[in-house]
Nucleic acid binder design. Structure first.
Lengths: 343, 343
DNA sequence: TGTTAGCACTCGACGACATTGAGTGCTAAA
DNA sequence: TTTAGCACTCAATGTCGTCGAGTGCTAACA
């Protein structure tokens, strides 16, 4: 257990390092007002904190730098909620003023502003559409062999799939099929579509549609690729501003990571809802050992549907990022809920 | 006008520099077989070539480096068509083997392979859909105030727009509207939709649809945002491999450029069709002064619909890139033509 | 017993300086 | 016109000494 003074010193060190990006020495801390302690005492405490694993020393005659464990303690116990400045608030509000047309645009905007305000790389996932309910399905034949299946959700999202048609299907059969699908599957959440197709629609199809088997297989195609995760990145280049990434090699690995959407989705997909912070090695990917991720969830109608977050160096302005993320996630939730529920 | 020997020397210098990324000296060229000339002679010729603006010298006691003008002469006059190696061909063919589902996937794949084979950043634009013809339009009401308009083209592409409905529209009116639109506008190219709407559909609407004015404005919305250019990037991180981008600052500017889609589209949108090469300052953007762009068009049914290209350092393996681009653009054209015309 | 002043020590950063070598330009001879 | 030879240039590299921020330890102090 850390003493009050140790906590205080750790706090000061982390704060300082976050601002300066340079190892902080005992004198710097001692000069900080409020603590009437000499640098020698601080040195002793620092040595203790290092032994406990909260601090690290780049080399013998340098100041101290927080370790992953140090940052962890900092975010868990020392950070206090930060209020955003007038200016930042004004910046953030921008998004919520403009009229929304497409949901995608709001998300895109959010990512852009998030990155702009924090100066880190922003990542937004989602919104998930598994929970969305089927509003309408349509099949538009393009020629004898192909058709486009279009699924509209109650939130206004449109997904489409190219289908290969069985040989010699008259348009009338397709029309019948579409009618059955719309009457039977309306308001069904997308993730249930396939199972409901077999359980409830198949029998009806067998009676009215010919050729039954092939059509069933075809239409299943249309329900397959729903829910592909969407990912929005902004401010990739911001990483380069960080002094810890002056080395070209490190930047390279990170940029390679930023191109692999599947990896990113794994990293940012926030299984628990709410605020998540992963610091340095906690990310378990080697490239990320000098990086932290902060994410939070956003909601539609109270249900978590996506993730908004940032990627930055472990030396991250956690307090500010958390404040900004909270604010944005709240705003996003409100806007999306309004939009999806039809105001 | 350059003498044969000068051309030969210029050729050798550019070739060498492309491979080594280091200023090439007179001795290096003289040792190259085939030219029985001493290094002193080469030095004289080099001085001449420099005076003519084809070469540059980083500093007095260094070898020569091609200038923009030098590269330009090289690609215009010295390069000879290059055949791809067995291995590269095998790599490239990959894309064309797998069955296509969505057009997007083919494009995405093309960008990926292009970047992989060349080791430069690849950019694919399009395909343009202005020329695509309307196959079907559908309006799905989500609630009292909003609806989704869905436009399907004859190529199977689906575009959707969120519409604000006028107050109190009965579904029957919407249905009437959709019927009119489908009967009047079928097979019309997308870029003509708006003008045709006013010229041919408006009068019909006035007779059958109520409220006529508001509905006209609403439906126009749906035809507005068609043809948003699509851009696919791959291998951004590859830039960092280039020795000329060891400096973090230069990389930063470039990565910022790579995040601005509108800028990229301007750069890559190849107004003339066919092969285009822009070297260094020819790009007129300052960030690009050390970069070259090579693009070519791809076609559907003989009409250019998009651009495929790469972005790399001015010290670019032009011969190889041109060969790869030609091959890919041809393949892409074939696949897309097949897909769009329904085989 | 905890705190602090003092001091020797460490080590990266930085600048001065010499060395090296690839490459040039010029001159004079072939 | 070509080429051998030579003096010259200049980035790159390495070595060395200095500087200073920062430490750890010890001994004195409250």
């Amino acid at each position: 257990m850390l003493s009050d003074r140790q906590r205080c010193i750790l706090h000061a060190i982390v704060d300082n390092y976050i601002r300066s990006a340079e190892p902080v020495g005992s004198r710097t801390i001692s000069k900080r007002e409020g603590l009437g302690i000499s640098s020698a005492t601080i040195r002793n405490e620092m040595a203790d904190l290092e032994e406990l694993g909260y601090l690290e020393q780049p080399h013998t005659s340098a100041g101290r730098v927080p370790s992953t464990k140090g940052y962890r303690f900092y975010v868990d116990n020392l950070i206090k909620p930060q209020n955003l400045s007038e200016e930042e608030l004004a910046n953030l509000k921008q998004i919520f003023v403009d009229r929304i047309t497409h949901v995608e645009q709001v998300i895109e905007q959010t990512a852009a502003i998030l990155s702009q305000v924090t100066n880190y790389t922003s990542v937004v996932l989602g919104p998930e559409i598994f929970e969305h309910r089927l509003k309408h399905i349509q099949i538009v034949p393009l020629n004898e062999q192909q058709a486009v299946a279009i699924v509209v959700t109650h939130t206004g999202r449109v997904e489409n799939t190219l289908l290969d048609l069985p040989q010699d299907i008259p348009p009338s059969e397709i029309e019948k099929l579409v009618n059955i699908l719309n009457s039977k599957l309306k308001d069904v959440p997308l993730w249930q579509l396939r199972q409901r197709l077999y359980r409830e629609v198949a029998s009806e199809m067998r009676r009215h549609v010919e050729p039954y088997e092939e059509m069933l297989v075809t239409i299943e195609e249309a329900f397959k690729n729903e829910g592909t995760d969407r990912i929005f990145l902004h401010g990739r280049a911001k990483i380069i501003n960080q002094p810890e990434f002056r080395d070209v090699e490190k930047v390279k690995d990170l940029f390679e990571l930023l191109e692999q959407n599947d990896q990113l989705i794994k990293l940012f997909n926030n299984r628990e809802t709410g605020l998540m912070i992963r610091i340095g090695q906690e990310n378990s990917i080697d490239v990320m050992k000098n990086c932290s991720i902060v994410t939070t969830s956003y909601y539609v109608d109270g249900k978590p549907v996506g993730t908004v977050g940032i990627l930055g160096p472990t030396r991250l302005d956690y307090a500010k990022v958390i404040a900004v993320l909270d604010y944005l996630a709240m705003g996003l939730s409100r806007i999306l809920t309004d939009a999806f529920e039809g105001k």
